[in-house]
Design a protein around this nucleic acid. Sequence first.
DNA 1: CTGTTAGCGCTTTCAT
DNA 2: ATGAAAGCGCTAACAG
Lengths: 349, 349
Amino acid sequence: MAKSPSRKPRAVKGAAARPAAAKPVTIRDVAKVAGVSAITVSRALARPELVSPETLERVRAVVTRTGYVPNVLAGSLRTRRSRIIAAIFPQVSNTLFVEAIQALTERLREEGYQVLLGLSSYERREDELIAGILGRQPDGILLTGVSHAPETRRRLIAAHIPVVETWDLTPSPIDMLVGFSHEKVGAAMARHLLARGHRDIGLVWNNDARAELRRRGFLEVLAGSGIEPAATCLGPAPATFPRGREGLAQLLRSGKRFTAVACSSDPLAQGVIAEAQDRGLRIPADLAVIGFGDLDFAAHTTPALTTVGIDKVAIGRLAAEMLLARIAGREAGERIVDVGFTVIERAST
Amino acid sequence: MAKSPSRKPRAVKGAAARPAAAKPVTIRDVAKVAGVSAITVSRALARPELVSPETLERVRAVVTRTGYVPNVLAGSLRTRRSRIIAAIFPQVSNTLFVEAIQALTERLREEGYQVLLGLSSYERREDELIAGILGRQPDGILLTGVSHAPETRRRLIAAHIPVVETWDLTPSPIDMLVGFSHEKVGAAMARHLLARGHRDIGLVWNNDARAELRRRGFLEVLAGSGIEPAATCLGPAPATFPRGREGLAQLLRSGKRFTAVACSSDPLAQGVIAEAQDRGLRIPADLAVIGFGDLDFAAHTTPALTTVGIDKVAIGRLAAEMLLARIAGREAGERIVDVGFTVIERAST
DNA sequence: CTGTTAGCGCTTTCAT
DNA sequence: ATGAAAGCGCTAACAG
């Protein structure tokens, strides 16, 4: 007859000395009070149809009265399903990602999943971030971008969970993919300006990997018409409003003539516009500006800005659908989805 | 001799039929390969100073080779510390909250905590959201706002974890608080306009709880000078750019004369400015506009906008510090912190 | 410095 | 419809 010495409260006296991590109500406490076994409580909560109506009612009453909150950690450990989806984004201080995050979160919530957000810009090594997150046993994971350290790739594959990469395209994703072609975006920007008759074009760009892809697409189209940029101002990521202002100032200092400025993303473009207006230039009459990124916001706040918008909500929602499908065992219809983009013109560029 | 039938692989043939949730590497696997006990592996990873250098090296080698990722769920279950902090925000599609979230997340990461984000606007009942999150056994929780259902309050207190409410003030927080006074913000807006000589003032406001507090403060100051708003346009939350446009249009249709417009938040103010400019009004010469919320962004993009800024980063960081202090057993210095606000004038209003 | 034992709170499996 | 036993993977507590 093994005695269970640690079963009884350790120390009745002095128990209130510290915030008192008072033992929480467990499923067994509920069971005891309701006069049933633990497993019946579990069933009453998870699969009420397996429990008689009277028992069910009794259990529910006790749950409410005691304020019992099931320990999801324990449940997940047993079932090997955490109902957590991890999502890795570079930052959250960027409208671009925020909308995707929100769409993803909402859709997953509907299915009872919670999103664990990882911010990659603030971790030295992406694979450490990922390892830390995989330890939480997510049922699926979303990544931003498609270039990851080999170590990261290995870990993700070893985790045997669905993975969606986003925000870019590649023929060989780790698992699934929903994104768009940055080169094509760049090309579209260039074609737009060319179609409006611009030949003298300045660039205000930042040099992160995906921005560079857009620039390549942009330059290729220009080259196809035998054109080179009149001047380029290339700065470090992240793209911000003040850097846009500075960018235009720099282009103007170069003394080169240009009728249009293309920017690697909308915050830069907004800065360029502000700087231009401060100098008495009318947009787009004196200077056309084209940016990239924001379907709604930039277009709203800066009616003069033409921009290449991507449907961030679609990315978030699609990523959610793909993950859910795979978790449910269904094969997702498409493993690679190109959501494309739209040139949004608010004023004639 | 209890046989352990479920110990052996269930079915060797056909095992590859489905994605095969291949059994992950556990601490025991690592222990076996390294020729030590499980607890030694645990120590090697968590408290290497307790393990001999040779053992340590051997264990680490095996960990790397096998790609072992500790199951944090299991660890948390045992230690009763999840290293998760839950943060409840209304939405994430609002620069206001985003900066606080980012600051919070960064600070907590430094201490090895992960942030679990809950979005309250999309859940019918706040207390269901909270219950779902508490089940994940967070070590602390951050809430936006100070008015919560009694049920929510009860649950949070029963959870025996540190709680920080934010974004508002109250003399009786659940636990800790970091925020600012919305009434004072409103009062400051009014005083600012009065000091600039404005007597005919229009309001474009939305009617969420905290905005209403700001309005009350605003109106009281006006009343103190014997002034009533010339016209008011009161709309539903959330405050958006288009509603700002519409708001000004409505004020103008009223036929009332006014030289300044106060807005409950910056997105509205930006809309008002855009609409004004479209109608040929110069800001602030013909029409002064004052908003609320954004320390950096709105001021940047709309130099003509005067706004009352709050230090969102400070809110996030302070909330993190307070939670960390309490988790560590220290009493946080102050339980109630008023971060205040700043009137930011970019152009003479 | 290392190991053994037990058990965190839950749910799967098998029995009744 | 309900329950008993076992164990998910880990680490606290107590040896040695």
